[in-house]
Amino acid sequence: MHAQNNVGMADTGSPSASSLDEREARFQSRIDDGIRVEPQDWMPDRYRKTLIRQISQHAHSEIVGQLPEGNWITRAPSLKRKAILLAKVQDEAGHGLYLYSAAETLGITRDQMVDDLHTGKAKYSSIFNYPTLTWADVGAIGWLVDGSAIMNQIPLCRCSYGPYARAMIRVCKEEAFHMRQGYDIMLALCAGTPGQKAMAQDALNRWWWPSLMMFGPPDGDSVHSAQSQAWKIKLFTNDELRQKMVDQTVPQAEHLGLVVPDPQVKWNAERGHYDYGDIDWEEFYNVVKGNGPCNRERLEVRNKAWTDGEWFRDALVAHADKQAQLATAQAA
């Protein structure tokens, strides 16, 4: 809990260089021993900053991730699918909240993070800048996007920072439902009319590559990887996780009778993995830079929701203040 993380942060003072080195060495050896770091514990500034960036980006992704699917809540093909999608999107809001809380234990405020998202200063996962054109996209997102997210998040349940690891455990429990409901949509479409199956194939074609890009740049170009691995806030490399995703997904696509849109996908018995083709990293960086199909729309919708809700948030505060005043007046 973060009741007194301020105390933990204030006690660092300005230690001399050698004692700082010593503290860092002790910090690293505790991590090597598998001891979790908790909010009040001393930690290197770079560890704190890296985690704030990583956790808040993750939180923003959960929040913005509600938008592409939220788009289909009112147009779901049945009441059952609508109720399921609503529950799934609500979970994503919850994931955002768990993660914002975890980030706050490191000393950043919620308001600061929300502001960074809304001004475009903070990043979120690029995948959410792609549009959801058909109902099949909702299936493909659950199957592939939540699938990739799980692949990425399961190892993080064992990461070195306690509040982050605990948030991840809650998130992972709920993600399994997300992935299955997505695959269930794909199963239904693939067992449907030729037109419905074609819709499923089209969604796979459009979401396959962006889902593989979710794991981030290839290991050679990944900037903070080595340090993050030493700190155990990254437990597998981007390429390792991406390979796992390909290995898991190709047979799932085959079961649906769909074809992944990569002619180079082929089982490699020697490696014990599927080979796959080159990813268009230019597209990835272009979307990260803000030029994806929906970057502007996503931020506009977020900002509008925030502004439209302002009167309500203000009213809640006014009510709380009034009640507190009444209570003091009665006590006096």
């Binding site: 809990m1 909240l97 706050e104 809650r170 709380a320």
Partner: peptide, 13 residues
């Protein structure tokens, strides 16, 4: 058991 935290304007919320 402690499960997490959240922000709210008052105890009811």
């Amino acid at each position: 058991r402690h499960v997490g935290s959240l922000h709210a304007p008052d105890a009811t919320m």
